[in-house]
Design a protein around this nucleic acid. Sequence first.
DNA 1: CGAGTCGTTGAACGGAATCAATCGTCGTGG
DNA 2: CCACGACGATTGATTCCGTTCAACGACTCG
Lengths: 200, 200
Amino acid sequence: MVSHFSQYISILTDASVRILATGDSLFCQGDAAQYIYVVEKGKVRMLRYTIEGHQVNLHTAVAGESFAEAALFADHYHCNAIADTESRILCYSKKEILAMLRSNPERGEEFMALLAQQIRTLRTHLELRTIRSAFERVLQYFLLLSDLGNNDIIIDSSWKSVAHELGLAHETFYRTLAKLEKQGFIERKEKTIKVIKLTL
Amino acid sequence: MVSHFSQYISILTDASVRILATGDSLFCQGDAAQYIYVVEKGKVRMLRYTIEGHQVNLHTAVAGESFAEAALFADHYHCNAIADTESRILCYSKKEILAMLRSNPERGEEFMALLAQQIRTLRTHLELRTIRSAFERVLQYFLLLSDLGNNDIIIDSSWKSVAHELGLAHETFYRTLAKLEKQGFIERKEKTIKVIKLTL
DNA sequence: CGAGTCGTTGAACGGAATCAATCGTCGTGG
DNA sequence: CCACGACGATTGATTCCGTTCAACGACTCG
C-alpha cells in the first residue's frame, strides 16, 4: 500500500514527467513496458477489462506511491492505467532502474522489501475476498487494520471506495457498517474515525 | 505460481530438512520469521483464520515451489502453514539467503523477478474475484490461461481445487462449466483438456 | 469389498446486488 | 449569491444467483 520506493528513486535517476487530465490513459495492456512510475500528484487507477467489457480495478495509486514496479521484469504491461483525476506522473526508465538496482545492492534489497510488502498486501486483499459474508468481511478488514495501529482507525478515503476495495456494493457496505455499529462491534465518531469494540 | 527459485537456491546454501505428517504445522501466524522454504515433496497450505474461526486459504505450495519468500523482509510470519499431505520441506535460513542475494546481484535480480511474478499472479487472482458472475469469472479464468499458451488448456489439478481457487462452490463451478460448454464457449475432451471456442 | 473423494445434477434458501429515492455537501458558473 | 448538477451517504424494496443441502454414480485405494 504505502511505498517508500519513490523517496530514493528520484535521487539517483532522471525522471521524465507526464501530466494527465482526468480519464487520460498512461499505458494500456500489452504496451511494451518501458517505464515504472511514481504518482507525484493525483490518482492513477489500474484496471483490466472482462470480455463483456466490464472494468475490473486492480489498484489505485495515490500521490507518493510508485506503481507498475512488477513491470520491471515483464516485457509488456498486463493492465491499463488511467488518471482518476488530473495527475502529475514521474516516469523512470526500466533500464536505468535495473542498472541502479544491479549496481547498488542496498537499494536492491529495499526494492525487494517493497515487492514483498506488496505481496503481503495483495494476499490480505485476497484473504478478504474469500470471506463470503459481508459482515465477516468488513469486520475482518477492520481487524486487519487495527492490529497495525491498535484500536482507532482513520479512514481517509471515501466509504464508497472502501466498499469497492472490499468487493462489495456500496449499499451493502453501508448497511453492514450500520449493522456492525448496532451490534456493538464498532463505533463511529464523525465520518472518518473508527473504533473497534469487540474482537469476538 | 511456478517458482524457479528453488532450483538454484539449493546450490548455494545449506538447507535443513523437515518432515511433516498430514496436518502438521510448519509455522504459525506471529512466529518469528527465520526461514523460507521449498517443498521437496508433498503439499503445504498457507492459511489464516477469521474471527469466527473459519479458515481462509492463501496459497498451496506443491513440490518444487518455494514459499514464504515475502517473509524475508518481515519480522514474523503473517499466516499459518500446515502440511496437506506428508511432506518433505527444505528450510533455508533468512540470514544466509539475504547474504547471498546481497553478494550476488544476478541472483538478487532473479529473486526480484520471482517476487514480481508472484505479484502478477496475485493481481490476476484478485481481478478474478472482483468479477461477480460465476459465468464471466470462469470464462475470464480460461481466457487468462489461454493467452499464455494459446487455445488448449490442460488442467492438472482437480476441478474442485480450481473451483476453490476461483472462490466458487464446487457445485457452482461444475454447473458453470456445463453452461459454458452448452453455449459453445469451451469444449471438454476428457476431464483434463480444455479448448476455448469463443472470445466474445 | 467398503470408505472416501471427485464429478455431477436437483431443489430450496439466503443474502448480496440492483433499482430506486432522499438528503446533504461541495463546487461551479451565471 | 444562489441555482444547479455531481456525488457521497443512507435506507427501502425487489430480484437474482451463488450457496447449501442432498443424493447418486464412478473411481481409487487400502
